[in-house]
Design a protein around this nucleic acid. Structure first.
Lengths: 192, 192, 192, 192
DNA sequence: AATGAATGAGGATTCATTCAT
DNA sequence: GATGAATGAATCCTCATTCAT
């Protein structure tokens, strides 16, 4: 009985395990064996499916970014006015899927990964471009031509809050994080 | 060349080399040998003076934080009113000593180090506490009781801008970074 | 189906190689690489199967002790009266399996190992306890209540003869060693 | 003020420290630095005086053997008849100077050292020869021509008791050890 | 598809030894 | 006489990766 169609299952399991492992270790200094064990398979199989450690990391990163993008897309679809669109983007960043300790740690480490992996760098840049584009678009009706600059600041603030969370004790509170960012946004809107 | 009193010289050379090496590699994944070679000595001597890799990293981190703290202190001494104090803190963060690519990369990696090194975590928390305390103090006359919250946001924005810089191409422009942060601060001040 | 069942083979080969290597070097100052090379594999594999140098040593010790115990047990089964039992124990100690130069050297070094390895110490104490128990049991009908004391002396004499052999030139002669010990035993028996 | 005549003091301190260090570690696996530190000097100086680690070990061994020999000589001078001579030799072996845990451990390790150091081997053989000669001489009037054989056994028993002590818990009791050996000797004498 | 077996390459760390002062 | 400085040469151990089955 040949097992068919295992590939997507295995890959998904490995990606999930990778994020968890990075989250737990707090660094990229984890072994393929650890990942594979957590995913319930041999390290040889992990190599078989991904070709190498780098590609496992990249897949995990791609997945994290994709989940995030999907959440933003979903939230945007619900939003009916600019203000709501803005809040949707920010809130999605702090939603339960993303703002968990292990995802935060993984996120931080993806920035590190990007420092020596051109592929990771490219992924991160694409993410940034989309984020800023989304923000800018939502902001245009609210702050006029200051939109790109405000988008930049919001994006930076967003990552900054994430970064600070990585030092925090206790479980991260998404709502508080979102408010920290939205507070700034409202200030800009008041200014008009 | 004297054969005594080398210790401080060697230690300083190793710390400098460590920061450069982390900066160049973009990660903590560097060898003691690399560091030692860059510092012009054998890896055995590096171990002799620091006891181990972890302590070399910690020393590099301590040094980075100390340089930063010294800059802030120096800038604060020049400042004569609250507004100037605020600008001093922010500008020091983006001054030539700190806002260089290798230091930015090192900074990012110290956040990673803090994820698994309690000592590194402690250092980073102390740095944060001081930064927020400094900011809060300067902000009090400017924004009243909103000071702690604004200080939090500024601190986050500061780190966020640094983080984004780690993805940027070309040399980092300190002035632009400082403006990005101060722009937000002014908004809060206008609100009063 | 992968290549399976190598583990016991590899472990046995490593244990054997360890004893030989200790015997040849005359000390525990041997490298895992030497052992592995002699056993026909990479040092990495040795670590894979044993976890570390200490455990390789312990396994070698356990094996040596087990072989010895098995020999004694075997000899005891043949013996039909107390005198024969006593001789069986002593002669087994000097049988071809045990009284070879490399085993003698290994034995000596296991005593050293026991000085800093609690596990080795425990193994050696168990061996001693069994040896004395065996001797005492065999001696009871021969020397009465002096049995425990005589057992102690025989055990000490036994190890002493081994120790002296480790200094001897030429091949060790088991028969002579056995006689040296049994001579004392007979003296005690004559006394009744 | 030039320090003159330091050499014998330094050498003695190093020898003493070596024995203590071996005793504490329970093996020869100690560093020159440890020895030198315990002796209150730099490792460079230790090398200066002895030339190398091997020679430090040899000196420590020579010293241990010399102390032992001196004790035996001293005790023999007091003895007035063969029986007393015999007891003197045995009791000296278990006297306070020799039968201390660290000396026992050192002794054991000298046997190991002899396995790969021809010089150590030679020293140990000389010691053995003297011991047996002394014993044989004392035994001749007591057991006649069995003297050499009995001397052999006593020597072996002596080392065996030492060896067993190295596994013992608690402080070694010299008197008990001596009795264990002398008990055998008396048996032989009774036989005549 | 899946994995136990196997290793080469590399890295942190230790240490005896040498040297300049 | 004495030592801090310095290193080359190990040694243990880890791990990504490959291979045979």
């Amino acid at each position: 009985m040949p097992k068919v169609g295992m590939e997507p299952i295995r890959r998904a399991a490995l990606v999930k395990a990778t994020i968890e492992e990075i989250g737990q270790a707090g660094s990229l200094d984890i072994t393929v064996s650890q990942i594979a064990r957590r995913a319930g398979m041999s390290s040889a199989l992990a190599h078989h499916y991904f070709g190498g450690k780098d590609q496992i990391f990249l897949a995990a990163m791609r997945h994290t970014l994709a989940v995030y993008a999907a959440q933003v897309r979903g939230a945007l679809m619900m939003a009916e006015d600019p203000q709501a669109r803005l809040e949707a983007i920010v809130r999605a960043s702090f939603s339960g899927q993303n703002f968990r300790p292990e995802v935060i740690a993984a996120w931080l480490n993806f920035y590190v990964l990007a420092q020596h992996s051109p592929n990771a760098m490219r992924l991160l840049r694409v993410y940034h471009k989309r984020l800023k584009s989304n923000l800018s678009h939502a902001l245009r009706p609210l702050v006029g031509e200051r939109a790109p600059m405000v988008a930049d600041r919001i994006a930076a603030l967003l990552d900054g809050v994430y970064l600070h969370r990585s030092l925090g004790e206790g479980p991260p509170e998404g709502a508080a994080g979102a408010e920290q960012v939205l507070g700034y946004a409202r200030l800009e809107m008041e200014r008009g």
